[in-house]
Design a protein around this nucleic acid. Structure first.
Lengths: 346, 346
DNA sequence: CTGAAAGCGCTAACAC
DNA sequence: GTGTTAGCGCTTTCAG
């Protein structure tokens, strides 16, 4: 890379001081009452030679690096990939770069904090992976490091959060299945203490209670491998063979469930109807397209930035907010009404 | 965020100079013949107070920021998401952060170069989006900015590259279809000049030529929307109704193709067999699992890093390498033999 | 073996 | 209105 031109070079070339250049560069010309003529001359010269202030030097000086750290379990999960894309768009609009990281390599506790400080990110957007201890987040909050959680938060942790209304989403989905004629609706979810899981369980339960139906909840161990989970679902379906509809608590769970259903030779939706949390292309294109609860990715990204941007560096916001967005039920064939064929036969 | 401790603080606390601290910090104690006793004392103190050198300051001084820029079209594309994940793992192992960006916002030309310099990434790994002009890459190469392309390169551009052997992959896939009994094999791909596309066409053609079969190539306009592409594929299938197998040139194309096939009421693989480039979960879980040419993600990431790591900053490697990896054909039901049932009937 | 000091490129108080 | 100058925290040359 050729030697880069610095602010001193432009100052010298123009026979002015670098302060002046710095001021016009940062749009403080007016404020500092630098003549328009000079300002324009500087701007023109900068444009001509393609000078760009060195962000590292700027960062060292100002303590702000225009980086946002995005921490997620797994970028290969479609929901996260979509969020990443949306966040990146917003970030670049605002002049931030996105430093992406999972926390696989940072497992444990203090590693995350150190990493964030090391990266010198100005803020952190995080969907805490399962293995992240609450104290890590607490430590960051206590440090007044700007942090925003999404997808789910950790119970008892006072931290900014943007997510969907899990309870009513689960309620609506369960209700939809009941309305379509399915009376034995199961919920298959993970056995973690993450808040969104409990909310989904609550929503599911209250929809059933309203119609005085029985609940069938299967909690899968998140750390098990796919085969173990399949095994366990297989047993569940065999034991409760009256079940004719399932609400899956996550996209991955649903995918495994579909394999199991296929193996059991059940037809969707006639033998078993399906709705899942988290929409993705997969569900839309599946042979029997799967009804899914879509998280409003764009809106999540927008809200995260609304929370982030007003926080000036060093004047840290101490008021945390939890923002809950509505999710959208994309109704597809997998939850088609059992009732319609009956009408047709009449 | 509390005030951070600096190298001067630890030097003062220990009554030594910051030079000494710096040396032991960078593992140059032995070389500088600093006593083990002192070294250990420094290390212990650093550990105790949790001091971490400020990477920004370090970056300003050394010109190296331990960031790698990863540029891809779309993180929401599963293949890219997988690569991103693999690259991130390698990067963090080596102490790099990954700055992720699409180039949506950087469309055009010089923007990318500027952005890279702005980010002060040490290197760039790039799967050039369709709209990226060759001259951008050339400019970076000319600047001796460490850059590695993957997935595809641009014709006539001398640049490091890691990708699969598209020609033989296409050859093998086509050959597999022929061997399975399908004699009218079509290739559906994009109408771009990207190198990997031409290679795939070549491989496809030579497999057909070897068996003296006729080729049917449909080139889709990449900038068309999904409906337009569906329309165009629909016409293609209707016009050439003797086609009983298709090789798709990309995962997205295949997904659209599957929709079309469904709409036409064709059964896979009996009416039409399918193989696609780029494997992903979707194809594995699809009702009729789709045979796919899987790019060796882990190996691609490894090779990218092998190319990247030996390049010391400022001593730029002027020899460019193109590394071609074998892809793996994951054979699934969508290309099941037409011949077996015949044998069974005997 | 260790320390003083220069400087990476930039910002911003403080002169003039 | 504009220039001088002191750092931000670190590395590294050069003297001792």
């Amino acid at each position: 890379m050729d030697k880069k031109i610095s602010i001193v070079d432009v100052a010298n070339a123009l026979n002015i001081s670098k302060t002046t250049v710095s001021f016009v560069l940062n749009g403080r010309g007016k404020e500092k009452r630098i003549s328009d003529a000079l300002s324009n001359k500087v701007m023109a010269f900068i444009e001509e030679v393609g000078f760009k202030p060195n962000p590292i030097a700027k960062g060292l000086r100002t303590g702000k690096v225009n980086n946002i750290s995005l921490v997620m379990d797994n970028i290969a999960n479609p929901f996260f990939a979509d969020v990443a894309k949306a966040i990146e768009e917003r970030a670049y609009e605002q002049g931030f770069c996105v430093i992406y990281s999972t926390m696989k390599n940072l497992v444990g506790s203090k590693k995350l904090i150190e990493a964030l400080r090391d990266n010198h990110a100005d803020a952190c957007i995080i969907a805490a992976p399962i293995n992240v201890k609450g104290e890590v987040i607490t430590a960051l909050v206590k440090d007044k490091f700007p942090i925003i959680m999404f997808d789910h938060y950790l119970n008892g942790i006072d931290c900014n959060y943007v997510g969907i209304d899990n309870k009513s989403s689960a309620f609506n989905a369960t209700r939809h299945l009941i309305d379509m004629g399915y009376k034995s609706v199961a919920l298959i979810t993970f056995a973690n203490a993450e808040t969104q899981i409990q909310d989904r369980i609550d929503g599911y339960n209250s929809a059933l209670k309203e119609k005085k139906l029985k609940s069938h909840i299967k909690k899968v161990i998140a750390t098990q491998n796919e085969n173990q989970i399949m095994e366990s679902l297989m047993k569940f379906f065999e034991k409760f063979d009256m079940i004719n509809a399932v609400l899956f608590g996550s996209a991955n769970l649903c995918k495994i469930g579909l394999k199991v259903i296929k193996r059991l030779g059940l037809a969707i939706p006639y033998d078993i109807a399906i709705i899942t949390f988290d929409d993705c292309e997969f569900f839309e294109y599946y042979n029997t397209p799967i009804t899914a609860i879509a998280q409003p990715v764009a809106s999540i990204a927008d809200n995260i930035f609304n929370l982030l941007l007003p926080v000036p560096k060093y004047i840290k916001n101490t008021i945390t907010q939890k923002i809950t967005l509505p999710a959208h039920l994309n109704i597809r064939e997998s939850s088609k009404s059992l009732i319609i064929p009956v009408h047709r036969n009449i």
